[in-house]
Amino acid sequence: MTTLAPVRAPILRLLRSELRWIYRRPRTLILLGLLALYPILFGIGTQVVDAPVRANGDQSVVAAVAGNAMMLPVIVLSTTMVFFLPLGTTMTASDALAGEASHGTLRGLLLAPVSRIRLLAVKAFGVAVVSAGAAVMTALIAFVTGLIIAGPDSLVTFSGTTLPLADGLWRVVVATGWVIVQMWAIGAIALAVSAATEHPLLVMASVIGGLFVFGLLSSIPVLDWLHPFLITESWDSIVDVLRDPMPWENLTTGFLRALCYIVIGYSLALARMVTKDS
């Protein structure tokens, strides 16, 4: 550091401009639009499909789902968290560093009067905001859709108990928060890959492809020693918030596992950033 250190740019301004960049990209908006439509279509679709089934006095799993303002958001989150939410997260992370590198704009940023650690922090903030925002939006729309379809007195759990609205909302909040942390873990890994390459598509391919490989590995019983290391291992347990009393055990393990991934991802990203040639 020289004594002529340039004036640091205010961090809030950096964060704001990063978010402006992300939310101006058409692909971000398109993905968010699809995510907003998904719960509505899911809710209405299952109602339509379910009508003839229920006339027979029987009800499928999916059917029970849509008739419930608590189940709909959780099931919608559990289905979006395996593809759409990681896709949005990875897309943002790949644009954040690899995208800039492929446009040649990262060089400018690396030379700018912003330390590389701060640059990584700004990029990480952008990814975190996008994934959290997408999850909250999806859950909220699903909750409202469920309320409109089924009303506030229908918050039936898997265990057959009926919860008051506040409790039901709390369960949805827990599920959303939990999904956000899982997406932050994906974002951390994606950002580490993004820091290591100049090809944004490689980030997408490796992270989304990696998730599919994880899914495959977790279905091979011989590899059961490996399963607890896979982040996808606890993703099924998001539906535990629909059980009463709520079993916290698997959710807690999944949360801690995601934290480990976040620490590993950002450590690797940091190592790559400080050793990167400008």
Partner: peptide
């Protein structure tokens, strides 16, 4: 960063 990776892996 090194300590972070180690801590994460140990945690897992």
């Amino acid at each position: 960063a090194g300590a972070g990776v180690l801590a994460g892996v140990v945690g897992l």
